[in-house]
């Protein structure tokens, strides 16, 4: 294995950890608002690192650009989706959890 393979493997593993943490937050966090934080932020970092690791594996500039494009599209959609869900929850008066 070359240094690039090691780097790529490390990025993919760290990316997987962020997906794991995001899912854990989705399950553990107490209400819809907090859960959205976990989903958007952790998964975006997870996908970013995964894309970076795969771009190294691909060894091609145009495929690396395509992967980058996928990441950007997911960033935009997940930020928009998180806002729409939080917005709908607020207008539906979904109770916010408070630390007592």
């Amino acid at each position: 294995m070359t240094i690039w393979d090691w780097l790529s493997t490390a990025l993919l593993l760290i990316g997987a950890f962020f997906f794991f943490a995001g899912t854990l937050g989705l399950l553990r966090f107490p209400d819809v608002y907090n859960r959205l934080h976990a989903l958007t932020k952790a998964d975006n970092v997870g996908l970013g690192l995964t894309v970076l690791g795969l771009a190294i594996q691909s060894g091609s500039w145009v495929i690396a650009l395509k992967l980058l494009l996928i990441w950007l599209l997911v960033l935009v959609t997940s930020a928009t989706a998180a806002h729409l869900i939080a917005n709908a929850a607020l207008y539906d008066h979904v109770q916010r959890w408070r630390r007592s």
């Binding site: 962020f18 854990l24 937050g25 966090f29 970092v45």
Partner: peptide
């Protein structure tokens, strides 16, 4: 990246440090 690390640490922390 900071945002992802922050929320990941809160998610795996047994005490669940949230003050929303």
């Amino acid at each position: 990246l900071r945002g992802g690390i922050d929320v990941a640490l809160r998610a795996i922390d047994p005490r669940l440090p949230l003050h929303p």
